[in-house]
Design a binder for these strands. Sequence first.
DNA 1: GTCCAGCATCTTGCATACAAGAATTGACCT
DNA 2: AGGTCAATTCTTGTATGCAAGATGCTGGAC
Lengths: 216, 216
Amino acid sequence: MSENVVQRLRDEIENSIISNDFAPGARLDEVQLATRFGVSRTPVREALMQLNAIGLVEIRPRRGAVVIDPGPHRIFEMFEVMAELEGLAGSLAARRFTDADRTTILAAHADCERSSSAGDSDLYYYDNERFHKAIYAASHSGFLAEQCVALHRRLQPYRRLQLRVRNRVATSFAEHGAIVEAILAGDAERARTLLRQHVSIQGERFSDLVATLASR
Amino acid sequence: MSENVVQRLRDEIENSIISNDFAPGARLDEVQLATRFGVSRTPVREALMQLNAIGLVEIRPRRGAVVIDPGPHRIFEMFEVMAELEGLAGSLAARRFTDADRTTILAAHADCERSSSAGDSDLYYYDNERFHKAIYAASHSGFLAEQCVALHRRLQPYRRLQLRVRNRVATSFAEHGAIVEAILAGDAERARTLLRQHVSIQGERFSDLVATLASR
DNA sequence: GTCCAGCATCTTGCATACAAGAATTGACCT
DNA sequence: AGGTCAATTCTTGTATGCAAGATGCTGGAC
């Protein structure tokens, strides 16, 4: 089960940060975490350094680790990059998808329809994630898929917030339909454009995000 | 200079890997590295875990760390993503560059001309790096710039190999000229396309890379 | 001669111990 | 009474020690 202590700690702390249990700016005390998880400081330090490398935590020399608070502007920048990577994944998928990829994408899309029409934004979040991962996989670029998954994970909390905005789930699902169509038609450029627009948070979607961030 | 031991170790080992002192597949023994750098195993372990997070080193549980060998295919994938990110940086730069950015880009471009006409591919490598970083900065997206710098660094050894191919330096510099023109003209889409083509290794450039990789 | 098993050794993984740099608090001076 | 400096305490950074798993070697059996 637990591969090793450090990985387990890394995941636990990462999840705590993503689920906002450790709020941005919070100080991560080594001994506190160590006692909390019943281990010594060494693996805690190693986990914190990994989170530092990922960019979730800042380690100030001799002054401890704090949870990074990416302001609205930086979140916007991350979505900008994510949009570009997803666009690339979509265009590659349109050119390279196999029969198995088609099946996986359509299945994920069908699940999205289910949770979308049910109006369950939390369930839709998971189905949506599977849908996007299916596209990453269909791109047949292992490196791109890794980058996308990593960024997707970092943006997870903000994506969830977005989906709570009225009608966003329905809109999102409608966009998925067009994306599936473009990919399966092999139209790489259209798939790229649609995915880029689907992911990027332009105009009022950005204001919505800022407003929702401020209110928690 | 040395902020702390771990950072120093991380850089030293990273450089040793990039400069091929530690070849891909080589085993990185903790005590060996510790005695070599005159420190204990703890900071060595932490440095190795950071390199693991970056993707330069693989840590197999209970079996030690080895230098990752990204095969030609994965290197191609990394260049593919890099091309996309640089394209985005170029398009943003075309829309957002300031007077200061223009000055920096033109200065870096002039330096490239110097080292290019001198035929010095090693010197050109550094000037080329500064040129690209100037574009990242002009994109005014801190996150994008960080991602680009990180990937650029990982691809460093392969870029150097590429520049050794006959006429590549001259071709590269010519492409720079068109890129500068597009950016300063504010033509975002042309800047994006040109940078994407400039960075990606299509067709015979990929065969050249594979051949050069095999011969060392 | 080759293959498998058991033991020894070596290496990693985590814990603990020790040292050095920050932060905080208290005392003294103005 | 308020500010500043110093000392203490708390926290981080590095070293060392100990236990468990992996590797390799040796010996025996087929």
